[in-house]
Computed example of a mutant assay.
Amino acid sequence: MKRLRTAEPVGASSARESWEKTKASRAKLAPTLVGAILLALVSPAWAVTVTSCDRQVSVAQPPQRAVSHDVNMTAMLLALGLEERMVGYTGISGWKTLDASMREQLAGLPELAARYPSLENLLGAGTDFVFAGWNYGMRIGGEVTPASLARFGIPVYELSESCAHVLPGRVASLEDVYDDLRNLGRIFAVEPRADALVQGMQRRVAAVQARLGEQPTRPRVFVYDSGEDLPFSAGRQGMPQPLIEAAGGRNVMDGVAGSWIKVGWESVVEQDPEVILIVDYGERTAAQKRDFLLQHPALQGVTAIREKRFVVLSYLAVTPSLDNAQAIETLAAALHPEAFAQ
């Protein structure tokens, strides 16, 4: 028996076609809307802009293939727990020796260049972020600079203390280290960890200040990095300046507008330092540097030489790093032993 087809009312066919088109359109639209909503929830827009020297540095997403230069900047990234997001480091084995702890942390991570990195080193590693500084892996007019790397879409964050080389008159401070840690925390989306590291340093420095109180004198300190014909030291724009000040001393080269500088032995004698801070790194050991200074004919009348008052600190401790807190503690105890006597 044939089923009779019921006639549709006038206009019903066009109405149904319109409905079918609307339903099909909605069916196509639904996945798009759902996908957009899920994308917004799972991968929200993320971008960070921080100040680096006199530049604004923007990072579209947390770096996954970062490169650090020198032992101090590498140590900062490791302290922030970022070794899994590093593709390598540069500028350590050419001048310095890693301690056992840092060697273990860097195991399996390649050193891309023993001294200064090249564009080829960085591009070959697929680098997506560089943490370096002026005279810490980058030189004005050199091959590797923020401008040269920008052409390849690689952002660079500059070590704040090093900005003195491009911003004349800038003086180093402990805030440089705190700012670097906080900015790196933002760039890598690990702000809580960065804040905890800064707070830990601040507590240690505050504890030293509390022990020192108001000291009637500030012993004169000469920083000896290296050099025989001319000593390599630190002026008021280098990190040793705020470290010595926080430890209750005075950098005898604070009148020199420079970061790490060459000076004359005559100026050392003229300033008559009471304590000499030896930076322990390089081909010569701290003991060899000490013996050289003790035997130097021009220094025999200097108070620190006559009284054999030396303080030895690592390169890591006197350059911007988390070890700056330990440097202040050690130096303060040497300059003002009475305040730290048990």
Rank of each mutant, 00 (worst) to 15 (best):
A206M: 13
A206N: 14
A207E: 01
A207Y: 15
V208D: 01
G213M: 10
R218K: 12
P219C: 09
P219Y: 09
P219D: 09
F222G: 09
Y224N: 07
Y224K: 02
S226Y: 15
E228A: 09
E228G: 10
L230P: 11
P231A: 08
P231W: 03
F232N: 02
A234F: 06
G235K: 06
G235A: 05
G235I: 06
R236A: 05
M239N: 08
M239V: 10
P240E: 05
Q241L: 14
L243T: 07
L243P: 13
I244H: 00
A246R: 14
A247H: 10
G249E: 01
R250C: 03
R250I: 02
R250H: 05
R250D: 00
N251V: 06
V252C: 07
V252W: 04
M253S: 13
D254Y: 09
G255D: 15
V256P: 11
A257W: 03
S259M: 08
W260N: 11
I261A: 13
V263D: 00
V263I: 11
W265R: 08
W265E: 10
E266S: 14
V268C: 02
V269F: 01
E270M: 11
D272C: 06
E274W: 14
V275L: 04
V275W: 07
I276V: 08
L277S: 06
L277D: 10
D280H: 03
D280Q: 14
G282I: 05
E283C: 11
R284P: 07
R284E: 14
A286Q: 03
A286L: 09
Q288S: 05
R290A: 02
R290E: 03
D291N: 06
D291R: 00
L293N: 04
L293Y: 15
L294K: 05
L294M: 13
L299T: 01
L299C: 03
Q300R: 05
Q300W: 13
G301L: 05
G301D: 08
V302D: 13
T303Q: 02
I305E: 00
R306C: 06
R306Y: 00
R306G: 07
E307P: 03
R309N: 00
R309T: 01
F310M: 13
V311H: 08
V311C: 09
S314P: 02
L316K: 15
T319N: 06
T319D: 01
T319W: 04
T319G: 10
P320K: 07
S321L: 04
S321K: 00
D323P: 02
D323C: 01
N324R: 10
